[in-house]
Design a protein around this nucleic acid. Structure first.
Lengths: 187, 187
DNA sequence: GTCTATATTTCGATAGAC
DNA sequence: GTCTATCGAAATATAGAC
């Protein structure tokens, strides 16, 4: 075996990676139901049966593809609101495709809905710790709700008004409302 | 023909109504793809073939079911923000099922996405007229975006934190942010 | 290990009996 | 006019050849 020959484990790892990338791409674009295993396999340039061989079922493939969603958002440093604005990619023009894949299907696929509730719940928990007052959890939930709305409208519905606007402008306009939500008092 | 016998046209109208109600219910609950014609017919207590006979295709049935979405929101009177809060049913515990049916599928069904963009665009237009400044349309879009986020999280994702909170409390916490968005100036 | 072929299911849609 | 029966397409999933 020459050194150009990859170990079978390594080759398998790479093929799995290609399949997962293609899956994230298609799940994010058209959602769980319309993203067929055949199309994913075609995009990854592998045989459809291989996808089943590796992941067992479409459900399993989806779960593997949308994993790693919790790893983000932990980038501390700035204050609450700035972290929020940065987290969901309002400042950056980017978002992890695994998150988009999950969000695309969260209204119509039970598994994705459960994942969304779990992820949002965790972020609400963390956010609520930094908010004083009795209604900290509700305030945190509403702040996350705002981010959900922006992400859905911008990245999933692709509303023209949001696509054309500079991200800093969007952040600037959202900032006061988020400060009112996460701040200590309200009119 | 006794008076207890309904005219055939009237009987047909009622059957169509039952089918449309069942369609709205199922489309709102599980989305376009998973709401099968068979299940809709079962819920309406009619034969599946009858649904096809009346509406021609699943697409047509969906379009008929989610129509009438634009009729709302025109309830003038209060000021901007109060109308917004009332419109998407944050105050009321209710929302038209046709709206929920459209929103449930808007991320995964192209037709529903187009309908959502159209409806949101119209509301953004109307809202922008009452907002001064260069960035009126962006501000209007972001205000609608907030409402989308609340509706999605509350009625579709059914986040516990929002379900448990009194609607007036939610409205109270959202009000400052919406005022900042629709008001004339911002920090 | 990889792919061909197919089994199995489930849907939307149609044709024809009553 | 309403329903029974079925078609045809497309999907997931499996079995077996190579």
């Amino acid at each position: 075996m020459g050194e150009k020959m990859l170990p079978r484990a390594e080759r398998r790892r790479r093929t799995e990676g290609r399949i997962l990338d293609a899956a994230r791409k298609l799940f994010a674009e058209v959602g769980y139901e319309r993203a067929t295993i055949r199309a994913i396999a075609r995009s990854a340039e592998v045989d459809p049966a291989l996808v089943m061989q590796y992941f067992g079922s479409k459900q399993e493939l989806f779960q593997q593809a949308v994993r790693v969603v919790d790893a983000d958002a932990a980038t501390g440093g700035d204050d609450l609101v700035e972290r929020l604005l940065a987290t969901l990619g309002v400042k950056l023009g980017e978002m992890p495709r695994s998150s988009l894949a999950m969000m695309r299907s969260m209204l119509t696929h039970p598994e994705a809905a459960a994942s969304a509730r779990r992820t949002l719940g965790a972020q609400i928990d963390r956010l609520a710790e930094s908010i004083p007052g009795e209604d900290a959890r509700l305030r945190a939930a509403l702040a996350m709700t705002v981010m959900v709305g922006v992400t859905v409208s911008h990245r999933l519905l692709e509303l023209d008004e949001l696509r054309e606007a500079p991200p800093e402008e969007i952040a600037r306009l959202l900032r006061p409302g988020l400060r009112a939500l996460t701040g200590p008092d309200v009119s």
